[in-house]
Write a protein that binds this DNA or RNA. Structure first.
Lengths: 205, 205
DNA sequence: GTCTATAACTCGATAGAC
DNA sequence: GTCTATCGAGTTATAGAC
């Protein structure tokens, strides 16, 4: 008999979808089990039947988020393009990726800040060989005299900052720079190409 | 009679200090009135006597945070230095300012994201003429042919991103880039000069 | 597996004595 | 103005019927 004594995987999937949506938007503390249950079209008791506790459900979502996004980033970075083309390709793809997961950066960064020790393991497990190729590419470009002598961590942090922050801090940006929703969307769209050119000009010899 | 029927301003001050510390670290939802009371050396009932509700206490802290930091930023930007010197001066001062308020960016951005409409008023009230001079400086440098034709919003967002993100996302950065606490602190220290040079090189004609 | 009902608990808020 | 004691709302979690 198929599925005998087995949880309904369709239901489990629906729960995970709803949980992701609500945890990402509201964080661990802001999320309500009732709201997740309503969104998934089941009742609260079922959530506990499938995931025992709010913490366990949260952990599943958090790990899933990291496990899904890190390999995608890795793939974007492990192409065989020359450095400048790689930067152009990465920035465009990464910002597009973030547009489809606008709550993810804030969610991850906020939860990590609240609980740095516990969650660092999950990140470390999933980042293997993510940046190694980019590191080698940068090193090579330095040796070839194509770029200035910039430290890898500085280079990487600058790319990440320029891609993530305007999305993470959407309402901060729109308020401080007096943008409408529409202007903001166009602004992000332009960044898909502008950020790469900004970085390339900054490091080019 | 001095202080007759008047709240003890010393106590009020202690409450605000403790509330700021705990709200900034844990956010509205993570903060506990009991913890704030303990930290201030009083009991919960007194918090309500002085501030009526958690929400009102939070609002006081949030408004205070914005009101304190925005004029400081404005002052850093309204110096009479030429553009490149202004960028150098601003980046160094701004990162130093953030080092003294490491929880503030995450606090503000997170709370705004959770409640964009309500809080945008406070920001708009306090940002008056903050960026106008920088805007004029950039415009002038463009017309003088000193810099490339970069849009102001892009320029401003890039500076802000490069200054704030590595501090806001401390534990994300240290984990992904495998830095120790000490390496991170040195990294931020270096950024006080490196970020400005990065930006200047990116916009210089 | 799924549901209803409720236990167990946390936390903001208040009453009332001093 | 300050404290102790307690209320009551909101939430996670579980018991138990089907």
């Amino acid at each position: 008999m198929v599925n005998k004594n087995k949880k309904n995987s369709q239901t489990e999937k629906r729960i995970l979808e709803s949980a992701r949506k609500i945890f990402h938007q509201k964080g661990f503390l802001g999320a309500r089990m009732q709201e997740i249950a309503d969104d998934a079209g089941i009742n609260k008791a079922m959530l506990h039947y499938y995931f025992r506790s709010k913490q366990k459900l949260f952990d599943a979502i958090f790990v899933e988020g990291i496990k899904k996004i890190f390999p995608q980033i890795k793939e974007l970075l492990n192409t065989d393009l020359p450095l400048f083309e790689k930067i152009r390709f990465f920035v465009k793809s990464y910002i597009t990726l973030l547009q489809d997961n606008i709550y993810l950066p804030g969610f991850v960064i906020n939860e990590i800040n609240q609980n740095p020790k516990l969650l660092s393991e999950i990140i470390n497990k999933n980042k293997s060989f993510m940046l190694e190729k980019l590191y080698a590419d940068l090193q090579e470009a330095k040796e070839n005299g194509e770029i200035i002598n910039i430290e890898f961590n500085t280079f990487a942090a600058n790319i990440i900052s320029l891609c993530i922050f305007p999305i993470l801090a959407k309402y901060f940006i729109t308020n401080v720079l007096s943008m409408s929703e529409e202007e903001y969307n166009e602004f992000i769209e332009r960044r898909k190409t502008e950020v790469a050119e900004f970085i390339i000009k900054a490091i080019k010899k």
